[in-house]
Design a protein around this nucleic acid. Structure first.
Lengths: 210, 210
DNA sequence: GTCTATAGTATGATAGAC
DNA sequence: GTCTATCATACTATAGAC
């Protein structure tokens, strides 16, 4: 079983690694095609433009994550008791399934999400918002079950603080793990960051308002 | 009293506004000098390089914020009871003092901080870490007074989740406020975001570990 | 201090041979 | 589908006249 990887996939794989590390705008097509060991012109041939390549990279993950998250949230909503913690635990399995896409899929995706979200230019914001808008609504509804005392506006903001802490932790993750290892002599795997994160997020969402 | 603004300050003012909106790398010297209505070459004359300009922009805020934060934390540490909430409230007044630098100083600074922190290139990370390293240590110590049950490693991570939620909220702030206004028909000022943020952060830090 | 002019380099995209 | 070669454009930085 020889591993025949198409040029298109070679480009996607090289691109997502560079995007996750340096961001979208900071990564050039020349870097991507050099890493992928394909010709510079092949990006335009297969994807049409850099914008389209970025969207293709995101789509590969969104198409796996979204249905899985949908399933988990729907299942949770049918239970009698819904806690904030349970809502965030709904992300664990869908994120894990991103390993089907790539070995370090969960980590890569969250980094990409961070850069996509911070991207002010708009084309990616619109693209991700179109997809995430739906999930946000579902999430808001489920979190409301767990915290009926919070107003919709409060919940909206807290959900975005959650997203902020998450993607930021991921983007800064490598540097922070380095510092933590140096200061506390204890290395922590990328996967364990999310275990530290979830209790923090649940505590923040459940906190009393001002 | 005519407002005679030096070329150097014109550049700083135009640069920080563009940096806060688009990030450092995404902003060109041409945009900056055009907005500032000065010559392209004057940036290099006054600052030496784009890197040096970025640091000068950050320094203008850090030199106001740091001593003020230092003062607040030192004062708090002498009290008998220290709560997480009280630690975060220490940021309110120092952040507010950034209005001395510029009208929307607090908002601008937090956006800049977000881009600085997300910047993987290193030169700014090193620069801000050199300055923020001290404050992080002081913060960690004060937060330990409020949460003696948390290990130093736990606190380290939670503090960075806090920073993540904060800068992310600020960078995405304009877009989020727009969405919130559209969905909930209620506009919220940039300053009020931090009022929603602080209870969330305190709840997250105080949360029980796994 | 401020300007013009330009060097030197990098980018995304494409035309056209194979 | 893949390649070379190149276009058009942007960037930071600097030299040198005023």
């Amino acid at each position: 079983m020889a591993k025949r990887v198409s040029t298109k996939d070679k480009i996607l794989n090289a691109a997502e690694a560079l995007f996750a590390e340096h961001g979208f705008e900071q990564t050039s097509l020349r870097q991507i095609t050099a890493d992928a060991e394909v010709n510079l012109a092949s990006v335009n041939y297969h994807f049409g433009s850099k914008k389209a390549l970025i969207q293709a990279v995101m789509a590969r993950y969104l198409e796996v994550l979204m249905p899985a998250l949908d399933r988990e949230l729907a299942e949770l909503a049918q239970r009698s008791q819904v806690t904030t913690r349970a809502v965030f635990d709904c992300f664990r399995e869908p994120l894990n399934e991103l390993r089907q896409v790539r070995k370090h899929g969960p980590t890569i995706f969250l980094s990409l999400l961070g850069y996509a979200y911070a991207d002010i230019q708009g084309h990616l914001r619109r693209y991700t918002m179109d997809h995430f808008g739906d999930v946000m609504q579902r999430l808001l509804a489920t979190l409301h079950l767990a915290n009926p005392q919070l107003s919709p506006v409060d919940m909206f903001w807290r959900l975005h603080f959650v997203l902020g802490a998450t993607v930021f932790a991921q983007v800064s993750g490598p540097a922070l793990r380095e510092i933590a290892a140096a200061d506390f002599g204890e290395a922590i795997a990328a996967d364990q960051v999310i275990d530290r994160l979830i209790p923090f997020l649940a505590g923040g969402v459940d906190a009393p308002t001002e």
